[in-house]
């Protein structure tokens, strides 16, 4: 029995309890920011059922993960360069049939991740929203989890539920948090603190150790974001000077600092 070869790649799952909080926006722009900071990054569209990374990046490739899963195309054909200087592996719309996690889909996804991971410094898994078995499985393949939330009450509740599930069913004790669409500076810290306190009171005591939430960054509500999305451009590419762009770059840099520490 041989041990698996050491992997230099770090796999980060980007997830959110609730949809519409900018998870894919964060994944794509974070990838661009990490690429600027010198990392070789791949974003894998793991929202197999309702992927929209292609829309965010304005990429509509002929060959997608679906073709890889069905064995019609080799994996390399499906890995594309994205506008922000990183690579993407898109799910494509043919993936609706994968919205249930069957053993075959699991094997395929695992195989693809195992194969691409050694070629990149980082693989970002853009998971679906919610706490479905597909999302939980995808997250379980990652080294780290980055939860994207907004200060909205519904987003906060769903983020909390996601963190609780990951702590209880996957033994996660370190979770990264990015607060999107903050209305005032420092709101991200407030959100983190509030989540942390409720976790400490209701989740920590039933586990063998506390769940630690680390704030990776806060991204301000910025009209530039909507503008970029409507132009189908990556924010970091089209409006690099925007406050939200700067915030994403700061988050990427903090992520690397945290990992180096």
């Amino acid at each position: 029995m041989t041990a698996p070869a050491p992997r230099r790649s770090r796999i980060t799952a980007v997830t959110s309890g609730k949809g519409g909080v900018g998870k894919t926006f964060v994944a794509a722009n974070l990838a661009a920011a990490l690429a600027r900071l010198g990392q070789k990054v791949l974003v894998l569209d793991a929202d197999l059922g309702l992927a929209n990374l292609d829309v965010v990046l304005n990429l509509f490739p002929k060959i997608t993960l679906h073709d890889v899963f069905t064995g019609r195309q080799p994996l390399d054909e499906a890995i594309l360069p994205a506008p922000g200087g990183f690579s993407v592996l898109l799910a494509g719309s043919g993936m609706v049939e994968y919205s249930r996690m069957t053993p075959e889909v699991r094997e395929q996804l695992q195989k693809v991740i195992d194969e691409v991971a050694p070629r990149f410094d980082r693989v970002l898994l853009d998971t679906g929203a919610g706490i479905s078995d597909v999302v939980l499985y995808t997250v379980s393949l990652a080294d780290d989890v980055l939860v994207v939330a907004t200060p909205e009450p519904t987003s906060l509740t769903d983020a909390y539920a996601t963190i609780k599930v990951l702590a209880t069913t996957q033994g996660r004790r370190e979770i990264q948090l990015l607060v999107n669409q903050v209305r005032r500076p420092g709101e991200g810290r407030t959100v983190r603190a509030q989540l942390q306190q409720v976790l400490d009171r209701y989740v920590g005591p039933s586990l063998d150790g506390a769940v630690r939430l680390t704030l990776v960054g806060e991204v301000p509500a910025d009209t530039a974001v909507r503008e970029a999305v409507q132009r189908r451009q990556l924010l970091l590419e089209s409006l690099p000077g925007a406050l939200a762009s700067q915030a994403v770059v700061a988050a990427a840099s903090r992520l690397l600092d945290l990992e180096a520490a």
């Binding site: 603190a193 409720v198 009171r201």
Partner: peptide, 17 residues
């Protein structure tokens, strides 16, 4: 109860980080 705690502003808003 947990939901309520998430929005309980008296719960303390200070981040001690």
């Amino acid at each position: 109860e947990e939901r309520q705690a998430l929005f309980d502003t008296t719960f303390g808003f200070e981040d001690l980080e």
